[in-house]
Design a protein around this nucleic acid. Structure first.
Length: 890
RNA sequence: GCCGGAGUGGCGAAAUGGCAGACGCGCCGGACUCAAAAUCCGGUUCGGGCAACCGAGUGCGGGUUCAAGUCCCGCCUCCGGCACCA
């Protein structure tokens, strides 16, 4: 039996790397630095291959750059605050901290078993005081810069459990996940970060992020949602009030036939007439209940109520009614709009429902428009009409002119509005960083002085929020002293959103042990920005936007050297796996679907004949398969997760097959940005590949080792440059070897792991052919073995290190340097020229590399097949691509 | 509706405007074996032919070019984001 890849070699190398500190940052102080980072996870316990993909990618890059001689920072940490810990604490009656730390230990040991190497001396854990002390520092810094403020905000309130709920705990029909009660809206004072101050910069700088996926850049632009327009003021008829509206279409002002306020607009109560009050109050109450619940539905009928009041259109003095309607949102613009039914679909629908005038003021170029015959709003560009002195103008120009004209009397101004809202950071939750603020009896607020940080989370018994944060139940926590006056004050009892914790952790890695400051200037200058950030696309908006915001704030404060945190971003695809559900076999041979399957996909619970069952499953995108001789239902590929129950756990797999097999399986199957399906066949392929590597190169390890002892590793590299006296198989191998070095190098730098591995497989095939032809391990073969081991090192690190040792290498392969290719060695002495007639392949020609162009042309014309397909037609043109092809046009 | 991305064998996928389908999976055939597994060798886009070979072929319809999976125009489908955002 030939040599095979043995997973038992792996633990030794993990221990070796850790002991030698091969992957510790700062190991090569003079070398170029490189910061490679995977998004830190919520510690969920044991890891499966779905988690593993992210880390295998980061580990491959880290190993590659270490081999290239860089000083690489590759740290890890834990996003350890958050709801699951509280829920688990309630369920299992443990402390959230104990539960979290246990999970961290489990996750860490999974990473360790997989041989993924981090600089653990820089580990951060967001729930530990030595980390959240600095999260609180960050809060103070934002507060001092006027970027943290308190305001009323609407929260989800569960009237049965008497608790505040996070948005994700409210289902689509507006019910609490726990009690099932209809969630109410409550106004609470909350802390906000003023991210909107940075909206324009966050938008502009997306242009700088040219190494980010276009998809993510687009999502961020979308989310920020800049829109240019104007604010216009309308006088309320017969009152000393004004309503300010935001519009992107000031050109349509003459066509405004009513105004709409959001139901929550502060002027509603003042402006409503007695006659309309009952209807308006009812509508407002209904809107409050409905808001958020089914606001999604664009298709919904327009609803609304007139206030009875009216206002004056500033451009033409026309008196128009004021309505309220829930299609106008208080949170955007000014919470009030001017409605121009002729040129806005929503206003059109509203006007038609309530019989309000439609006044068209823009006509299509070279056409006309008529209110009576309109069936939909005209939203295109066109020519102004019914707009006084602006008639006949281009509507875009007129829009600018109208704003300028109204601006003279202070009734309008250009205005940019963003969809982005300020970041609500307070949570009425236990398991988070306490907000370091104090409330005085007079209602004013004072910050906790820095020398009193951290504000520690108190130990409490009951984590369930009771309408206020659980922290409010701890008197020793709540009662504090005013740092200025010494008077009693009350601590803020809210904790921070976990996105605050994760908005700056990548900075802390630069100097994670620093007890005096966030970090030292030298450390942050050495390591920022992150060269390569790797993570799931699910964080494309919030985490990445918050991190960019915080980095910019810290940049403005002079604390970081760059205002963008992540130079390059890579978003990897998911690992998926089919789910198998065994089917029961009835005594009569018919098949019965188990309860879970009946529930999940609605297949019949009744016994079905085999072909009936197959059909029923197929209709639901399932397949009927035999597994270990028993019938089972097989789903399509589903993202690996605990809840789907299809995760392949890291530990057991690595022990049985090896981390290297897991890595090859995942990295070879598909480009890393794509989803990949984890399958037994894929594992088998990876295993076969590594077995062949071991069998071929491991089989000759004495020969390689002996040659190395004779010529040294530099001598082995020098053999790659020897080109004379090679037989055909050796010349082919040498050429392939140089081509492979080049391809693996370039592909690895651009996440082309699948093609890099394909190239290694081709090299293995070529080496195998050469070994068979030569009948012994030639010098070239031995040099190939040594080079192959190094090229394999980013992807199958344990085996690479083992090969290195087998071949007589000392120390680690990661200090052995990355192989170099010789461009001149890429082309053969003879090359194959493709002959085309009218662009169609007709023949091939083998010619010496340096053959003259005319010569090639002559030989091409001499080809019998070419002559035949030319069919005696006259030659019109000849295209010669040197070294590649000849195209004869007839 | 707006924005972004993608459509290539049975499957995952390759391809600086220059031989479409590398590499792998699966499948077929062969070797080894009493047999099987493992391993090794060969074949495998589709249609026709014993074969050499011939024809077609990268979502659809046009175009540019000596030459298009690749560039341009117009569509279709799928995936993702945003969406009553004024």
């Amino acid at each position: 039996m030939s040599l095979r890849f043995d997973p038992a070699i792996e633990p030794r190398w993990r221990e070796f790397w850790a002991r030698e500190g091969i992957f510790r940052a700062g190991r090569r102080p003079g070398a170029p630095r490189r910061y490679i980072l995977e998004m830190f996870p919520y510690p969920s316990g044991d890891l499966h291959m779905g988690h593993g993909k992210n880390y295998f990618i980061g580990d491959a890059l880290t190993r590659y750059w270490v081999m290239r001689g860089h000083d690489v920072l590759h740290p890890f940490g834990w996003d350890a605050f958050g709801l699951p810990a509280e829920n688990a604490a309630i369920k299992f009656k443990t402390h959230p901290r104990a539960w979290t730390l246990r999970n961290i230990e489990e996750s860490k040991s999974s990473l360790d078993i997989a041989g993924i190497m981090y600089d653990w001396s820089r580990e951060v854990t967001t729930c530990e005081p030595d980390y959240y002390r600095w999260t609180q520092e960050l809060f103070l810094l934002l507060y001092e810069r006027g970027l943290a403020y308190r305001a009323k905000a609407t929260v989800n309130w569960d009237p049965v459990d008497q608790t505040v709920l996070a948005n994700e705990q409210v289902d689509a029909s507006g019910r609490s996940w726990r009690s099932g009660a209809l969630v109410e809206k409550r106004e609470l004072s909350q802390w906000f970060f003023k991210i909107t101050d940075y909206a324009q910069r966050l938008l502009d700088d997306i242009d700088k992020l040219d190494a980010w996926p276009e998809k993510v850049r687009a999502m961020q632009r979308n989310w920020i949602g800049r829109s240019e327009g104007a604010e216009v003021e309308f006088d309320v008829a017969g009152r000393d009030e004004r309503i300010t509206v935001f519009t992107t279409r000031p050109d349509t002002l003459f066509g405004a036939t009513f105004l709409v306020l959001a139901p929550e607009h502060p002027l509603v109560a003042q402006l409503v007439t007695d006659a309309n009050r009952a209807a308006v109050d009812a509508y407002v109450a209904q809107a409050r209940r409905r808001s958020e619940i089914d606001r999604q539905s664009t298709e919904r009928e327009k609803t609304g109520v007139a206030l009875g009041a009216s206002c004056v259109n500033p451009v033409n003095g026309r008196e128009i009614p004021i309505w309220i309607a829930d299609y106008v949102l208080m949170g955007y613009g000014t919470g009030a709009i001017m409605a121009v039914p002729a040129h806005d679909e929503r206003d059109f629908a509203f006007a038609r429902t309530f019989g309000i005038d439609v006044v068209p003021v823009i006509a299509p170029r070279g056409g006309s428009i008529d209110a009576a015959s309109m069936t939909e709003a005209f939203t295109e560009e066109g020519v102004m009409q019914a707009s006084g002195r602006f008639d006949g103008q281009d509507n875009r120009e007129a829009g600018r002119a109208i704003v300028a004209w109204l601006a003279e009397s202070g009734r309008a101004r250009p205005k940019v509005t963003f969809r982005l809202r300020d970041w609500l950071v307070s949570r009425q939750r236990y398991w988070g960083a306490p907000i370091p603020m104090l409330h005085r009896a007079d209602g004013t607020i004072v910050a906790v002085p820095r020398d009193q940080l951290p504000v520690l989370l108190p130990a409490i018994d009951d984590y369930l929020p009771k309408g206020r944060s659980p922290l409010a139940s701890s008197e020793t926590f709540v009662n504090a002293q005013d740092p200025v006056t010494g008077e009693p004050v009350q601590r803020d009892t809210d904790t921070m959103d976990t996105f605050v914790d994760s908005s700056w952790y990548f900075l802390r890695y630069a100097d994670a042990q620093n007890q005096q400051a966030l970090w030292s200037k030298d450390a942050i200058a050495r390591w920022m920005p992150v060269d390569q950030y790797i993570g799931g696309v699910e964080h494309a908006i919030l985490h990445l936007l918050y991190s960019r915001f915080v980095t910019k704030v810290l940049f403005d404060a002079g604390l970081v050297p760059e205002d963008e945190p992540f130079r390059a971003l890579f978003t990897q695809g998911m690992v998926q796996r089919r789910v198998l559900t065994p089917l029961e076999v009835a005594p009569d041979g018919r098949l019965i679907a188990p309860e879970e399957l009946v529930k999940a996909i609605g297949v019949s619970a009744e016994p079905l004949a085999r072909d009936e069952m197959a059909r029923a499953l197929r209709e639901r995108s399932y397949a009927l398969v035999d597994r270990d001789g028993a019938p089972a239902a097989q789903s399509g590929p589903v993202t690996m997760s605990k809840s789907a129950g299809n995760g392949v756990p890291m530990g057991p797999f690595v022990r049985e097959h090896g981390s290297d097999v897991a890595r090859i399986t995942i990295l070879f199957a598909a480009p890393p940005e794509n989803n990949m399906e984890w399958s037994d066949e894929g594992v088998g392929g990876a295993e076969r590949f590594l077995n062949r590597v071991v069998a071929l190169f491991g089989g000759d390890r004495e020969a390689v080792s002996a040659l190395r002892a004779e010529v040294g590793s530099d001598g082995l590299d020098a053999i790659l440059l020897e080109s004379s006296g090679l037989d055909d198989a050796s010349a082919a191998l040498r050429r392939r070897l140089h081509a492979t070095i080049k391809k693996v190098t370039l592909d690895t730098e651009h996440f082309g792991f699948n093609t890099a591995l394909a190239a290694l497989m081709e090299l293995l095939n070529e080496a195998s052919r050469q070994r068979a032809a030569a009948g012994s391990a030639t010098r070239l073969f031995c040099a190939t073995a040594w080079t192959f081991a190094r090229l394999l090192a980013p992807f199958a690190p344990h085996l690479a290190e083992e090969l290195h040792a087998w071949f007589g290498g000392r120390g680690s392969i990661y200090d052995a340097g990355w192989p170099a290719w010789d461009e001149a060695a890429l082309t053969a002495d003879t090359i194959e020229i493709v002959l085309q007639v009218n662009g169609k392949l007709r023949d091939k020609l083998v010619v010496p590399r340096d053959v003259a162009e005319d010569d090639v042309k002559a030989r091409a014309l001499a080809s019998a097949k070419v002559q035949e397909s030319m069919g005696g037609k006259p030659l019109r043109k000849v295209i010669v691509v040197p070294g590649k092809l000849v195209n004869l046009v007839v």
